[in-house]
Amino acid sequence: WKVTVKGVEYTFDNPEEAKKFAEELAKKKGGQIHYKDGEFQVH
Rank of each mutant, 00 (worst) to 15 (best):
W1Q: 05
W1A: 08
W1V: 11
W1L: 08
W1Y: 11
W1S: 08
K2F: 08
K2G: 03
K2S: 06
K2V: 11
K2W: 05
V3F: 01
V3C: 04
V3I: 04
V3P: 02
V3Y: 01
V3A: 00
V3H: 00
T4F: 04
T4S: 09
T4N: 05
T4M: 06
T4E: 03
T4I: 14
T4C: 11
T4Q: 03
T4V: 14
T4G: 01
V5M: 13
V5E: 12
V5N: 06
V5L: 10
V5D: 14
V5Y: 15
V5K: 00
K6R: 11
K6I: 08
K6P: 05
K6A: 15
K6W: 13
K6V: 10
G7T: 02
G7H: 02
G7E: 05
G7L: 02
G7A: 02
V8Y: 10
V8L: 11
V8P: 00
V8N: 07
V8K: 11
E9L: 07
E9D: 06
E9K: 05
E9T: 14
Y10S: 01
Y10W: 13
Y10N: 01
Y10A: 01
Y10K: 02
Y10T: 02
Y10M: 02
Y10Q: 01
Y10V: 02
T11P: 07
T11L: 15
T11Q: 12
T11F: 15
T11K: 12
T11R: 13
T11I: 15
T11S: 11
F12G: 00
F12K: 00
F12I: 00
F12L: 00
F12W: 01
F12R: 00
F12Y: 01
F12C: 05
D13G: 08
D13M: 06
D13Q: 07
D13C: 11
N14F: 05
N14P: 00
N14M: 03
N14S: 13
N14W: 03
N14G: 08
P15C: 15
P15W: 15
P15Y: 15
P15I: 15
P15A: 13
P15M: 15
E16L: 12
E16I: 12
E16H: 11
E17R: 04
E17W: 02
E17P: 01
E17I: 06
A18N: 00
A18M: 04
A18C: 02
A18I: 01
A18K: 01
A18T: 00
K19H: 10
K19P: 00
K20G: 04
K20F: 08
K20L: 10
K20T: 08
K20S: 09
K20I: 11
F21Q: 01
F21P: 00
F21E: 00
F21A: 01
F21G: 00
F21S: 00
F21M: 03
F21H: 01
F21V: 01
A22C: 09
A22L: 07
A22D: 01
E23Y: 09
E23N: 06
E23R: 03
E23A: 05
E23C: 14
E23F: 07
E23I: 10
E24Q: 10
E24G: 08
E24T: 09
E24P: 00
E24I: 08
E24W: 12
E24S: 10
E24A: 10
E24F: 09
E24C: 15
L25D: 02
L25N: 05
L25Q: 12
L25T: 08
A26W: 04
A26T: 09
A26P: 01
A26R: 07
K27H: 10
K27C: 14
K27R: 12
K27T: 11
K27F: 11
K27A: 13
K27V: 09
K27Y: 09
K28Q: 13
K28Y: 08
K28R: 12
K28F: 07
K29W: 15
K29G: 14
K29I: 15
K29H: 15
G30D: 08
G30T: 05
G30A: 07
G30W: 04
G30S: 06
G30C: 13
G30V: 04
G30F: 06
G31F: 12
G31H: 07
G31A: 12
G31P: 04
G31S: 08
G31V: 07
Q32C: 15
Q32S: 13
Q32A: 10
Q32V: 14
Q32R: 09
Q32K: 13
Q32W: 13
Q32F: 14
Q32E: 13
Q32H: 15
I33K: 02
I33N: 06
I33T: 04
I33H: 03
I33R: 02
I33E: 05
I33G: 04
H34K: 08
H34D: 12
H34V: 13
H34R: 09
H34E: 12
Y35V: 10
Y35E: 11
Y35N: 07
Y35D: 04
Y35T: 06
Y35Q: 09
Y35F: 12
Y35I: 10
K36D: 09
K36F: 13
K36H: 13
K36P: 06
K36L: 13
K36T: 10
K36R: 10
K36W: 11
K36N: 11
D37Y: 01
D37N: 03
D37G: 01
D37L: 00
D37H: 02
D37P: 06
G38I: 04
G38S: 06
G38M: 08
G38F: 11
G38Y: 10
E39W: 08
E39S: 08
E39V: 12
E39R: 04
E39I: 13
F40W: 14
F40L: 05
F40S: 03
F40R: 02
F40A: 03
F40V: 05
F40T: 03
F40Q: 03
Q41D: 06
Q41K: 07
Q41A: 10
Q41I: 14
Q41F: 10
Q41T: 12
V42Q: 05
V42D: 05
V42G: 03
V42M: 04
V42E: 04
V42N: 03
V42H: 03
V42I: 14
V42A: 03
V42S: 04
H43E: 11
H43A: 08
H43R: 10
H43S: 13
H43P: 05
H43Y: 08
H43V: 15
